[in-house]
Amino acid sequence: MKLTGRTLLADGKLRSGTLTLADGRVRGFTPGPARPCFVLPGFVDLHVHGGGGADVMDGAEGVAAVASFHLRHGTTALCPTTVTRPLRELEAAVAAVGSVSDGPERARILGTHLEGPFLAPARLGAQPPHALAPDPQALRRLLAAGPVAAVTLAPELPGALELVRLLVGRGIRVGLGHTDCDAAEAAAAFEEGAGGATHLFNAMRGLHHRKPGLAAAALEAPKTVHEIILDGVHVHPSLFRIAYRAARGRLALVSDAVRACGLPPGESELGGQRIVVAADRATLGDGTLAGSILTLDRALRKAVSAGLSVEEASDLLSRNPADALGRTDLGRIVPGGPADVVVLDEDLRLRSVLRGGQEVDLGA
Rank of each mutant, 00 (worst) to 15 (best):
S99M: 10
L87A: 07
L14E: 01
V39D: 06
H47D: 05
P104E: 07
A92P: 06
L40Y: 13
G12N: 07
G50A: 13
H49F: 10
A60K: 05
G51T: 06
T18D: 15
A64H: 08
R85L: 15
V26W: 13
A93E: 03
L46R: 07
H73R: 13
T84H: 04
T76K: 01
R85M: 12
R88S: 11
V97K: 00
A95F: 14
L19K: 08
A60E: 15
D102A: 15
A93P: 09
C37M: 15
V100S: 07
L40D: 12
V83A: 11
G28I: 11
E91S: 11
L19E: 14
P80S: 09
M57Y: 02
T20Y: 04
V39L: 13
S16M: 10
F38M: 10
A95D: 13
P86E: 13
G74F: 08
L21G: 01
V66F: 04
V39Q: 05
L78H: 03
A77M: 13
G98F: 00
L78S: 02
A60D: 07
L46P: 12
R35I: 06
K13A: 09
L14G: 03
T75M: 01
D23E: 15
V66G: 04
F38P: 08
P80T: 06
L46N: 13
D102N: 10
G98R: 00
H70S: 11
D23M: 01
A96F: 00
T30C: 05
G50F: 05
G52F: 10
G32D: 07
G28T: 10
D102Q: 15
P80N: 04
G28Q: 08
A54L: 08
T75K: 01
H47I: 02
D58Y: 09
R35G: 07
T84F: 05
H70Q: 14
D45T: 01
V39S: 14
V100I: 11
L78W: 01
D11R: 00
G74W: 02
M57W: 01
E61P: 05
T18M: 08
L21R: 01
V83G: 05
G98W: 00
K13Q: 15
A93V: 15
L78V: 02
V63R: 05
D23T: 07
T75A: 02
